[in-house]
Design a protein around this nucleic acid. Structure first.
Lengths: 150, 150
DNA sequence: GTAAGACCTCAACCTTTCTTGAGGTCAAGG
DNA sequence: CCTTGACCTCAAGAAAGGTTGAGGTCTTAC
C-alpha cells in the first residue's frame, strides 16, 4: 500500500461512480482492492482505467456479468498493459458495429415503414426486426444483446 | 367484435411476444382490447402495428412508461392513420440520432484511447464519456437514456 | 355434451444494477 | 485525546420488464 493509494471516496469522485456502486462492483469481481489495517479499502490508481473500461463496456451493451468475465482474463496482480487493454477493447468492435447498424437500419426505416400503409406486417421490416429478443429466455430483455451472444 | 378479431394467443404468435407480455402491456396502458361475453380478450388487427411500433421504440431506447405516454396521444377508439404513426415515428429521430452518435464516438475512441497510455484520465474521452448516467437517480440505469431526457 | 386446450386473475417471483439504512468502526486534524 | 467525517458490513428495497404458478373459467371440435 503505497502512499499514493486511493480511498473509496477518492475513486468515487474521480470515476463519477457512487461509493455504493464501487462496493457493488467489487462484490461482483469487477474490481479489487487491498485493505488498511483498519479494514478500509485502498485502490491502486490503476482502478480508474479499469472503471473507465467498465463504463465503456456497459455503453457498448455488455451486462456486468459478462464484463466481469472479460476482465477476469486480464492479469490480476500486475497493472494491465496498454496493448492488453487494446486487445480487449477491440474485441468489442463487432458488437458495437452491429448495434450501430441496427439503429441505423431502424432510423432509415422509421419514416418509410411506419407510415407506409403496408398492411402486411409480415413483410414490414419494422414489424419483423432482424433481431427479436424472444428467444433470449425469461427475465428482462436487454435489447442490445444480440441472439448471437448466447 | 367482428369475426376477424384476434385472441391473445394469435397476437402472441404473430407479434413474437409472450402472452404474459401482452397482458403486461395492456395493464400498463400500451395496448387495449375488448372482451368476449366470457371475459376473454379480443384484439383488432390494428394491435399488431401498435406492437411493432412498441418494439421499435424499445429498440430506440424508450422505456415502456414513456412509450405509453407517446401512444396515449394517439386516438384511442379508431385505428391510427398512417400520417399519425409517421408523426410519432419522426419524433423519435433526434433520440435515435443522438444514440447513434454516442455509439460512433465510443467506437472511434475505443482503439485510440484505451491503449493510448494516457494516464490522465481527466482528459481521456473514454474515461469521461459525455453522457454519464450518474445523475439519473436510483434503480437500474438504462444506458441508452441520455440525461437530456429528464 | 364433454374433454382438451386456450384464457382468466392475482400474487409472487426473477434478473439486473445499484441505493438506502441501521448500527458500528477508522483516521486525521485541532 | 477527541471529535467528525469517511468507511465498514449486512440486509432490505427499488425500478424496469416481465414470467410463473395456482386455482378456476371459456370455447370449440369431436
Amino acid at each position: 500500500m503505497s502512499a499514493g493509494d486511493l480511498a473509496i471516496g477518492d475513486v468515487a469522485r474521480r470515476s463519477g461512480l457512487a461509493v455504493s456502486a464501487l462496493r457493488f462492483y467489487e462484490a461482483n469481481g469487477l474490481i479489487s482492492s487491498t485493505r488498511t489495517d483498519g479494514g478500509q479499502r485502498r485502490y491502486r490508481r490503476d482502478v480508474l482505467r479499469r472503471l473507465a473500461v467498465i463504463q465503456a463496456a456497459q455503453q457498448v451493451g455488455f451486462p456486468l456479468a459478462e464484463i466481469a468475465g472479460m476482465l477476469a482474463e486480464l492479469p490480476a496482480g500486475r497493472p494491465v498493459s496498454p496493448s492488453e487493454w487494446q486487445r480487449l477493447a477491440r474485441s468489442w468492435r463487432p458488437q458495437l458495429d452491429e448495434r450501430i447498424r441496427t439503429l441505423e437500419r431502424l432510423r432509415d426505416q422509421l419514416d418509410s415503414c411506419v407510415g407506409c400503409g403496408c398492411l402486411s406486417m409480415e413483410k414490414c421490416a419494422l414489424a419483423n426486426p432482424a433481431d427479436r429478443a424472444s428467444d433470449l429466455g425469461p427475465g428482462p430483455r436487454f435489447w442490445l444483446r444480440s441472439r448471437s451472444a448466447r
